[in-house]
């Protein structure tokens, strides 16, 4: 469970989150959507305890989010932080040394699934394979909360497809909750349970995607266009 209660975040005079409240229940895949600069990454950072609210509370699994939450939250940032001289195998070993919940066996299974060779050097990986490796490292952990920041940006449709299949195959839906910030909504709408929409740091709402299709007869993309216009 993740709870935001009247959260404000200011960087100097820049008011990036304004009075945001929402609740995310476990076992779901939630899309966090909004135009660039609307505060999506800040929300993810608050959940992972990398930054603190200026006011209000961020509760994660029943406690206030802080740096110790890192053992329970997997945070896949938009940028990757790989050492170019490492091999894929080195990277796996490094993660195992850093995270108690890292499962080597699952990681190797994931490498096979993503068709990655563990002897390859990071610097020789294509952009798509770096994206795949990031997801391998994230999904090999057992932590209950998985945060993904623009996991598909700049990747071609083939890679996106394999990432979506990877998510569906390896997430433990009984125990894990996924929150992904994205503006490529078309790629992910079939896998989402809910959407949380924000704009300019303000909360617009939380919606069940099947209900939108059912009640409005619109695709999520069409519906979002209307929402953001109004």
């Amino acid at each position: 469970m993740i709870e935001f209660h009247k959260v404000n975040k200011k960087y100097g005079f820049n008011h990036v989150l304004k009075d945001i409240s929402f609740t995310i229940h476990p076992g779901k895949i939630i899309g966090l959507v909004g135009p660039n600069g609307s505060g999506k990454s800040t929300i993810l950072k608050l959940i992972s305890g990398l930054t603190y609210p200026s006011s209000g509370d961020v509760n994660v699994l029943g406690e206030l989010a802080n740096r110790r939450i890192a053992s329970k939250v997997i945070y896949l940032t938009e940028a990757d932080s790989f050492y170019p001289s490492f091999t894929v195998k080195d990277m796996l070993n490094f993660y195992e040394s850093q995270f108690a919940d890292f499962d080597q066996e699952k990681a190797i299974e994931l490498l096979h699934f993503m068709k990655l060779n563990d002897s390859m050097k990071i610097r020789s990986l294509s952009k798509g394979n770096r994206g795949r490796l990031k997801l391998v490292l994230a999904l090999a952990r057992k932590a209950p909360i998985l945060l993904l920041d623009e996991p598909f940006s700049g990747l071609d449709p083939m890679v996106r497809d394999s990432l979506v299949q990877g998510l569906l195959s390896f997430i433990d839906f009984e125990k894990q909750t996924v929150l992904m910030a994205t503006h490529e909504i078309e790629e992910v709408e079939p896998v989402l349970d809910e959407l949380i929409m924000i704009e300019n740091g303000s909360y617009l709402g939380q919606y069940h995607v099947e209900t939108i299709r059912e009640e409005k007869g619109l695709s999520i993309k069409e519906w979002m266009k209307e929402k953001y216009k109004g």
């Binding site: 779901k28 299949q165 569906l168 839906f173 079939p190 896998v191 989402l192 349970d193 099947e210």
Partner: peptide, 13 residues
């Protein structure tokens, strides 16, 4: 869910 590439909760429904 894997065959259709959708959320398992959707199949549950």
């Amino acid at each position: 869910a894997l065959t259709f590439g959708v959320n398992p909760n959707t199949i549950q429904r």
